[in-house]
Write a protein that binds this DNA or RNA. Structure first.
Lengths: 200, 200
DNA sequence: CACTATACGGAACGATGATTCCGATTGTCA
DNA sequence: TGACAATCGGAATCATCGTTCCGTATAGTG
């Protein structure tokens, strides 16, 4: 129950070079994971950061840990936007459009950040990751916005948050070496959104 | 230009046990690749076939080669159905429904056979695989059925075969350890099809 | 400036998975 | 049935990748 050590308070400030390297590693990892997802070898990140692997492992005890650091950051950004959407809180006519705009945003992130896709994909399978609660929150947000749009009468009611996520993720995912986007992803997402609308 | 040996004609008939093992390997691979996709270790296939890895490698010089044998078979089945659809050849009212039924079939295969997904996904990236021409044919078929449905006035016209495939594949793909289906996939595909319809 | 705790780099290690090799086995044919 | 080529099985090998270790370098401090 009571943790032996307080993990939140750093024992002491990092040495200057250590702090610098930690930052470099995070920046490099953000780029590399975005491009190639979790599959990329750790050496790639280290090289890109201009740092030895040993250094990486001092800062992040495991590849997973580094990945999680990135993904948690990504999810926090996404949740920030989401909260804005929720609080803007249209329940009337705006609800449907707001929901679609939200899906657009999620879709854009997923198609841009390969790591987000991997994380959310894996999250479906195992929710015990350290960002599991954030994923749960995201899912709750999706469900809430979806329910509001349903209540506003704009979209079909026979889905749930998981299924909506599967639609967006599936459609917006871009396989590894695929060429530039030129708006195809957005167009596809629009097809899905049209499909969600109630038949007029 | 002229091949030194004719690869199509087997030098001599296979020995009885060899033929039996070859068949077992194919059966095992079909099951295992369907369940786990290309990611599964070759030993799993060998074990399932009740055969040593060495035996596998005598029959298929590479993991890729075995995988291709399976996928080519899968694609041929799919193309068979597709040709039936094409020749049934409705150009009028039926074209849209026929197109959707076709997508249903593709979606079902993709969600059932994990290997098909891997193969088609990779095919987008590198078309030089030995089944590349079959994929190309499938794509042509999709385009044809799509064009007919568009001509019949049933669906939107701003997509192409690649994009239609991406929609279906993304939506129907089932991540590795995911639970049983209970019709969710079909429901999602229906959303997509509704999205493809022209607004009434 | 010297001293030491901290941090660094990258070679070495361990696990996993594809592929190769070779002594043992077995089908086929006379 | 005996001989032999085809085939088999699975241990050994090679490559990749995550992780650990340890000798070296350096920021911080007096």
């Amino acid at each position: 129950m009571i943790p032996i050590v307080n993990e939140d308070a750093p024992r002491r400030p990092l040495r200057a070079d250590a702090a610098r390297n930690r930052e470099r590693i995070l920046v490099a990892a953000e780029e590399v994971f975005a491009r190639d997802g979790l599959a990329v070898p750790v050496d790639t990140v280290a090289e890109r950061a201009g740092v030895g692997v040993g250094t990486m492992y001092r800062h992040f005890p495991t590849k997973e840990a580094l990945f999680e650091a990135i993904v948690v950051h990504r999810l926090d950004e996404l949740l920030e936007l989401t909260r804005a959407d929720i609080e803007a809180g249209a329940r009337g006519d705006g609800a449907t459009d707001r929901f679609f705009a939200f899906l657009d945003r999620v879709g854009e992130q997923v198609s841009l950040k390969h790591d987000l896709f991997d994380a959310l994909g894996a999250a479906g399978v195992d929710l015990r990751s350290s960002y599991g609660d954030r994923v749960a929150e995201l899912k709750r947000a999706v469900q809430l916005l979806y329910d509001r749009a349903v209540a506003a009468g704009g979209i079909r009611s026979d889905l749930n948050a998981d299924e909506v996520m599967q639609l967006v993720m599936g459609v917006c995912h871009r396989p590894d070496g695929s060429p530039a986007d030129d708006g195809a992803t957005r167009r596809l997402l629009r097809v899905v959104c049209d499909g969600l609308r109630v038949r007029s």
